[in-house]
Design a protein around this nucleic acid. Structure first.
Length: 492
RNA sequence: GCCGCGUUCGUCUAGGGGUCUAGGACGCCGGCCUUUCACGCCGGUAACACGGGUUCAAAUCCCGUACGCGGUACCA
């Protein structure tokens, strides 16, 4: 089955605005993007807002913002317009109506009047399927008679339109990732196409729009695989050539199972794209991680920028089995990407997260801090949280550290060191170190006897970057003040 | 229940009949470096779900079983 539009590849990402963009949704969008771009094709963002009861008004905005944050550009979207506008399904209802009528005329669809309650009751015993065998027991075009049908239709009684599933045949299609997939038509439901509120279901809207928008490749999550045969039937009913299909494996939680919001957050894994942004993750790292979750380049290369991914990506290297999300690995990718940033870019990234924490510092100072921290930060957002002592005096001293490092002679040694710092010139790394070592020599103690308490006093912590580099950045006044304060607080 | 899709180290994966005593990465463990914690470097742990075929030969092909996941809505 070849798509009709030779040459130009057109892919669509079609989220439903029922919530903010999920990390799994971003992965689908990414694969759509990578495939489209790697083939010199186009990417369309289409909003599938046909469920009015679950509609969330700012979800679309979040999708657009999240894609932009991730660096995934689209060629056509509700906010960008294009030759196939509108791109919100709620604004295309006339199309769905028109096509439903077409199906009705051709005998591929029919009117049905069963209420949700009646349907529930039928399904209670578990064996009911609304198909060729089941529909003769229901209230519809086939069981009502033309007079009653006409009456109900003209009197405005609520109805749905269902697809008339063929009785006994195999429905087959080729999936780029899974190969040939086939299912017996009798196991399929007479899918509702048009709901009683006049809106189309996903199935109808999706098929109609993909066709009308010249989509050549449908790339979506595996959860759609079971309903694809119904879509194939719809394409046939319309007399259209189906697009190429590719069903992506699902992202699973670290304990297996769907990476649902509840499931994931219980394990400390954010699911919303905006949460990764707020936590200070690098968009390229998130993208890199997501790309390798289900796809691999066939080489041992792992760190990719978006452009590299576009160059390397092919759909035939996408795996078929679900992959568990791993925060550890994401953090590793984040660190890799952080390191590749030019100094100014790193500064900009950290500056924005620092501002978000209400801290103000000069770029010059922050740059010096970053020189010290560059190799150790995993997350831009962690500079403000884990290395807060560069911006404010420590509010507490690590308890375990105090027990281990604060000795009887600490107060005396620190006081002596503080005195020397007052006079130190120049106040730089080298001078700081030699002053400390000189003091240690005079007092006949190991340098560590001073180094550790000094770190504790100036940072509140037992670990961190090179001590003397840190003191130099902090500056004379801050160092002296913190040393004296620690002597006061920790005493002896 | 029924339908569909999957199954290589704990995790992401390479491999697609002989080159597999199964490779890489994350994690974990050890060592080196070091004032600390990281980084870096060196080393280690650890996998072909099971059972039948096919074949001279199977992680690779076929069938079955088990397990996992998805679907089974007037949700997408």
């Amino acid at each position: 089955m070849r798509a009709p539009h030779d040459g130009l590849v057109r892919v669509r990402f079609a989220p439903s605005p029922t919530g903010y963009l999920h990390i799994g949704g971003l992965r689908t969008a990414l694969y759509c993007y990578l495939f489209a771009r790697s083939r010199g094709g186009q990417l369309v963002l289409r909003i599938e807002d046909t469920d009015r009861s679950r509609f969330l008004s700012d979800a679309e905005e979040d999708v657009v913002a999240s894609l932009a944050w991730a660096g995934l550009s689209v060629d056509e979207s509700p906010v960008k317009a294009g030759p196939f506008a509108p791109y919100r399904q709620s604004e295309r209802t006339n199309q769905y109506l028109r096509h439903t009528v077409r199906l009705l005329h051709r005998g591929h669809a029919y009117y049905a009047f069963d209420t949700p309650e009646e349907l529930d009751a039928m399904r209670k015993d578990g064996t009911f399927t609304y198909n060729a065998a089941g529909r003769i027991h229901m209230t519809n075009e086939f069981t009502l008679g033309s007079k009653e049908l006409g009456r109900r239709l003209t009197s405005g009684e609520p109805y749905v339109v269902r697809l008339k599933t063929p009785e006994d045949r195999m429905v087959r299609f080729h999936d780029i990732i899974r190969g040939e997939v086939s299912v017996e038509a009798s196991t399929l439901d007479d899918q509702v196409l048009l709901k009683s509120d006049g809106m189309p279901t996903y199935h109808l809207a999706n098929v109609v729009d993909d066709h009308l928008m010249n989509i050549t490749h449908v790339i979506r999550g595996e959860e759609w695989l079971p309903s694809t045969p119904k879509h194939i039937l719809l394409y046939e009913a319309f007399g259209w050539e189906p697009p190429n299909m590719a069903h992506l494996p699902l992202i699973m939680s670290p304990t297996g199972g769907k990476l649902s919001k509840r499931n994931a957050e219980k394990q400390g894994i954010p699911v919303l794209v905006r949460a990764y942004r707020d936590l200070g993750f690098e968009p390229e790292a998130v993208i890199n991680f997501l790309a390798l979750l289900g796809w691999n380049p066939g080489t041992e290369e792992e760190v990719f920028g978006l452009a590299d991914l576009v160059d390397a990506f092919t759909l035939d290297r996408v795996g078929a089995s679900g992959a568990q999300f791993s925060l550890d690995k994401l953090r590793w990718f984040n660190q890799q990407h952080l390191r590749r940033l030019a100094a100014e870019d790193l500064l900009a990234r950290v500056r924005s997260s620092i501002h978000a924490h209400g801290i103000t510092v000069s770029d010059a100072y922050l740059m010096r801090v970053l020189d010290l921290l560059r190799e150790r930060i995993v997350l831009a957002g962690s500079v403000a949280t884990e290395y807060g002592y560069f911006f404010a005096d420590p509010s507490a001293y690590d308890e375990k550290g105090v027990r281990k490092r604060w000795k009887d002679d600490s107060a005396g040694l620190l006081t002596a060191y503080a005195d020397r710092l007052e006079l130190l010139d120049p106040f730089d790394e080298e001078a700081l170190e030699s002053a400390l070592r000189t003091l240690a020599g005079e007092q006949e103690v190991g340098a560590g006897r001073i180094i550790h308490p000094v770190r504790l006093a100036t940072s509140g912590s037992t670990f961190g970057p090179s001590l003397f580099g840190m003191l130099a950045v902090l500056g004379r006044d801050v160092c002296v003040r913190r040393l004296q304060r620690a002597v006061q607080v920790l005493g002896r």
